[in-house]
Simulated assay, not measured.
Amino acid sequence: MTHPAAIPSSSASSNAPSTGEAPKRQRRPPRRVEVSKIEILSPAMRRITLKGAELEGFPVTGPASYIKLIFPEPGQTEPTRPLPDGPRAVSMRTYTPLVVRPEALEVDVDFVLHGEGPASTWAAQAAVGQVLFLMGPGPGYAVDTAATQHLLIADDSALPAVETILAALPATAHAQVLLEVISNAEQRVLHSAAQLDVRWLARGTDHRTAGEPLAKALRALPSIATEARIYLACEAAAMRRIRQLLIDDLGVSRSQIVGRGYWKLDVVNHPDHDYGDDA
């Protein structure tokens, strides 16, 4: 989900030596934000509103875009502001900005409480006034508003991205949504102008079964429309298995699928540009 490496301008000197390395991506400046509101959506999901004067000029981007949040290290009351060319912050994680309110200088972010980890641990104890640094946004998912059939396949980590996609669909669209969550207590109403068919699939607390309920539900579908646009986002290995299931067993064209590996079992810092097209 990160920007691709920049392509050098054609006006650059042809005599410049080649290092064989991609140009370094320009980091967006960090923005200091404070928690202004906390909403409990379900036992494992918190919606936290981040607010701050440094959100002035923060752009409203498309569905399933991403931001980076930098969390305090142990012993800190707030994170250290990262330098533009300094090392990557240790406790930095990728999230979807659910709603951006430029006039109020606010961004809403949903957090899954999945156990140990800098972000989950912080979100479980978050309080109004606590400080984070926010970087981004990065690009998201280009919704084909002309398509009438959409299939969204995701686990709880990608639920906020799914919600932003649903919000972008027109009333002429039909969206079939498969959502894998910890338990049935995570179910809630999803909103969209489109016609929705939502199935919540309980995985349980064993993360090693990630993706199994999604795969089972897909195999039970009567059919997938040949013109359907498919967004697939979940644990990285599960995403690859489901992608191949769609292609090899269910007859879906590769061009119909956009895949995102939102997290990876037993990996602390999974890259945010895992598209699964190496499967």
Score class of each variant (00 low, 15 high):
residue 165 I to M: 06
residue 122 W to G: 07
residue 212 E to Q: 15
residue 49 T to N: 06
residue 204 G to N: 04
residue 42 S to K: 07
residue 186 E to Q: 04
residue 108 D to G: 08
residue 145 T to G: 02
residue 25 R to F: 05
residue 246 L to S: 03
residue 14 S to H: 10
residue 7 I to P: 04
residue 189 V to Y: 07
residue 161 A to Y: 05
residue 263 W to T: 10
residue 40 I to A: 14
residue 109 V to H: 03
residue 84 P to T: 06
residue 96 T to W: 02
residue 175 A to P: 03
residue 261 G to E: 04
residue 35 V to F: 10
residue 266 D to R: 09
residue 168 A to M: 07
residue 43 P to F: 11
residue 230 I to R: 08
residue 183 S to V: 04
residue 234 C to M: 15
residue 178 L to V: 01
residue 85 D to W: 10
residue 216 K to M: 13
residue 75 G to P: 05
residue 278 D to Y: 08
residue 34 E to S: 13
residue 238 A to P: 01
residue 147 A to R: 02
residue 226 T to A: 15
residue 27 R to F: 01
residue 112 V to Q: 11
residue 44 A to E: 12
residue 133 F to M: 09
residue 195 Q to L: 08
residue 7 I to Q: 14
residue 188 R to D: 04
residue 265 L to C: 09
residue 155 D to G: 05
residue 11 S to M: 13
residue 3 H to G: 00
residue 234 C to L: 15
residue 202 A to G: 10
residue 124 A to L: 11
residue 270 H to F: 08
residue 112 V to Y: 10
residue 146 A to D: 13
residue 25 R to N: 11
residue 202 A to L: 07
residue 25 R to I: 08
residue 222 P to I: 02
residue 52 G to A: 05
residue 12 A to R: 15
residue 172 T to C: 07
residue 102 P to T: 12
residue 115 G to P: 14
residue 270 H to I: 00
residue 30 P to F: 04
residue 11 S to E: 15
residue 106 E to G: 03
residue 38 I to Q: 12
residue 148 T to H: 12
residue 129 G to E: 03
residue 29 P to G: 08
residue 200 W to S: 02
residue 151 L to I: 06
residue 68 K to Q: 11
residue 114 H to Y: 08
residue 210 A to H: 01
residue 240 R to T: 08
residue 50 L to E: 04
residue 2 T to S: 00
residue 152 L to E: 05
residue 244 Q to E: 07
residue 261 G to N: 05
residue 127 A to I: 02
residue 267 V to W: 07
residue 114 H to Q: 04
residue 106 E to F: 07
residue 120 S to V: 05
residue 105 L to K: 15
residue 178 L to W: 01
residue 83 L to C: 05
residue 80 T to C: 01
residue 181 V to N: 02
residue 216 K to Q: 15
residue 162 V to C: 09
residue 34 E to T: 12
residue 55 L to W: 09
residue 252 V to Y: 08
residue 24 K to R: 15
residue 187 Q to E: 14
residue 227 E to P: 03
residue 133 F to E: 02
residue 64 A to Y: 04
residue 162 V to W: 07
residue 126 A to F: 05
residue 52 G to H: 05
residue 141 Y to W: 04
residue 140 G to N: 00
residue 175 A to C: 01
residue 198 V to A: 01
residue 116 E to T: 14
residue 213 P to Y: 03
residue 255 S to D: 14
residue 33 V to Y: 05
residue 95 Y to K: 00
residue 119 A to S: 14
residue 134 L to Q: 06
residue 273 H to G: 00
residue 148 T to W: 02
residue 110 D to P: 03
residue 17 P to L: 00
residue 25 R to V: 11
residue 105 L to M: 13
residue 103 E to W: 11
residue 225 A to R: 12
residue 197 D to P: 04
residue 191 H to D: 12
residue 228 A to Q: 07
residue 174 H to T: 14
residue 224 I to V: 11
residue 126 A to H: 08
residue 116 E to N: 14
